[in-house]
Simulated assay, not measured.
Amino acid sequence: MTDPAITDLSKDAAARAATLLVEPGMRLGLGTGSTAAIFVRRLAQRVQDEGFALRCAATSKATTELATSLGLKVEELDDIGWLDLTIDGADELDPDLNLIKGGGAAHLREKIVATASDRMVVIADQGKVVEQLGQFHLPVEVIPFGWQATRTLVTRALDRLDLTQRPVLQRMRDGKPLLTDEGNFILDLALEAIPDAYELADELSSIAGVVEHGLFLNICQLAIIGRPDGSVVELRREDME
């Protein structure tokens, strides 16, 4: 069945493959972003065709609205308690299945949902696979109170890691600061490359005012990479150990 809202064949290939991981009765985390949205559409189609039940927790208001409109049952994560599986996209994916997420400004909820799951699976197109993280701006969610002081502390942390003169940009939308679903700001770090993602993650997590960063390290177990011809490649964490 053709869905006119789905135009990217690579993303659709990954999303279709991921729907096969979903089993009736699962407690499922739904990601945010363009590829995750395609997955939600394909999942809703399969649920309708096969008539089985799921309990879903969404990572954003946008995903909640989309999933609900398509007939999926979306509940609060606290009401479900724990998830069997989360399927989400990524902005960058390195050879160790470490990720940068947050292009959709939902990485706080995405990380909470992913780490409240037995398993996280990423779906992406080939353009998201990189040798080293950092080309995509790294999102850092900060509370509005004292955000400029927080940005100064972030800049100092980058200097300590020899990531000097890297712009720390406040994300804007329609000429105003973008607000996340939690009412926070996003700082985007234009790093170009991240030599040590673990060290950077520790530095950012230690800063007062930083709510969460977009480095997802040792969280993803499987990546399904879609190709334009409709085929997919699977990258598994156990293959790298």
Rank of each mutant, 00 (worst) to 15 (best):
G230D: 09
P177L: 05
P144L: 06
P195Q: 00
G103Q: 05
T152A: 15
R173K: 12
L93C: 12
T150Y: 03
T64V: 14
E50S: 09
L235C: 14
Q132V: 13
D202L: 11
R27P: 05
E238G: 01
V154K: 09
L161T: 04
A62L: 03
R109E: 00
R16N: 05
V233M: 13
E65C: 01
N218Q: 13
Y198N: 02
S117M: 04
L43W: 10
T63K: 15
D12T: 10
L70S: 09
G175W: 06
T7P: 00
L200H: 02
D159Q: 15
L83A: 03
L77W: 00
R151F: 07
G71R: 14
A197G: 00
L215H: 07
V142W: 04
G127I: 15
D94N: 13
A90F: 04
N98F: 06
L200N: 06
Q135A: 14
A17G: 11
I87Q: 11
S231E: 15
H107G: 02
R171Q: 07
V47Q: 14
V233R: 15
L163E: 08
G89R: 10
K61P: 00
F136K: 04
A62D: 12
I123F: 05
E75K: 03
D84I: 02
I225P: 00
E76W: 02
I100F: 09
G29P: 00
I225C: 07
V142F: 04
T19F: 10
E110T: 01
I143Q: 11
C56V: 04
P144S: 03
Q170L: 15
A201P: 01
V211H: 13
V210T: 09
A36F: 08
T59N: 09
T152P: 00
L70Q: 10
L187R: 08
A36W: 08
A15M: 12
E50F: 04
R42I: 05
L153K: 15
Q45S: 09
I186T: 06
D8P: 04
R171N: 03
S10A: 15
L178T: 10
M172Y: 05
T35Y: 02
E212V: 00
G103D: 02
E199M: 11
L235G: 04
D96W: 11
P177N: 09
